[in-house]
């Protein structure tokens, strides 16, 4: 990769839920434009790692910086603002607001940032076009197929032109053909706009879209293979 300073720097992150140690001293960097796969079996702590990196969950200890901001010291409001503006998210399911149309769903993060409705929806329409789901713009998510819904979700993650997109099992509910299409569009769009992607998955075929992978087991990173383009 390039010699850029990392976007996200994590050092020795730990996080426990009750007595279970979900994260146990994890260190890692995420660089601009790179696609990083976070792999590991269920319950290994990979989702917790993502939640910590994205500022959704505050780690118990360790250091975490986004550019030059300390994410551990940041208040909830600051982290929320960061998530709205700098990060994008794609989940396995349950993320689209069922009563809004697909277009309105994509426009949602912009509107949360205070962009006017018309402008937000114009930009949302562009991203729906790019992800080849312009035809479902006026439909509700319930009326679109699973693959279309997930592409709408990606459009929504990218609409704010974030620096990092966090994707948690984005193809988990899809068949391989749809999963492939979703992954291809996600990585293509991310690479074109030099958006970093933190891709949480347990599927090697999904991880194969990454530039490098880390494997989390029992809350620790097993191995960090060097980047291999």
């Amino acid at each position: 990769m390039t010699g850029d300073a990392p976007l996200l720097t994590a050092r020795d992150l730990s996080k426990a839920y009750g007595t279970t140690r979900a994260l146990d001293g994890v260190s890692l960097d995420v660089r601009a434009g790179e696609i990083l796969a976070v792999m590991g079996p269920s319950g290994s702590g990979k989702s917790t790692l993502m939640h910590c990196l994205a500022g959704i969950v505050r780690p118990d200890s360790g250091e975490l910086r986004y550019r030059d901001r300390d994410l551990i010291a940041a208040s909830d409001a600051e982290r929320s603002a960061l998530r709205r503006g700098e990060f994008g998210f794609v989940f396995q399911f349950g993320q689209l607001v069922p009563e809004l149309t697909c277009l309105e769903n994509v426009a949602l993060p912009l509107r949360m940032e205070g962009v006017r409705r018309k402008e937000a929806e114009r930009r949302a329409a562009y991203w729906l076009e790019r992800l080849d789901v312009a035809d479902v713009a006026g439909k509700r998510p319930g009326q679109a197929s699973g693959g279309q819904g997930q592409r709408v979700a990606i459009a929504r993650a990218l609409v704010t032109e974030p620096s990092v997109v966090f994707a948690d099992e984005p193809t988990g509910a899809l068949d391989s053909l749809n999963g492939e299409m979703v992954m291809r569009l996600l990585t293509e769009c991310a690479e074109q706009s030099r958006t970093a992607v933190v891709l949480v998955t347990h599927e090697p075929s999904v991880a194969a879209y990454s530039h490098r992978e880390i494997v989390v087991r029992d809350g620790r990173i097993r191995t960090s293979a060097g980047s291999a383009r």
């Binding site: 939640h51 982290r79 709205r84 998210f89 949602l108 993060p109 949360m112």
Partner: peptide
Amino acid sequence: RALLAALTAFGAKRGA
């Protein structure tokens, strides 16, 4: 609940 949690992840303001 899943939707609300996802929206929070997106940085939705609780107030909104």
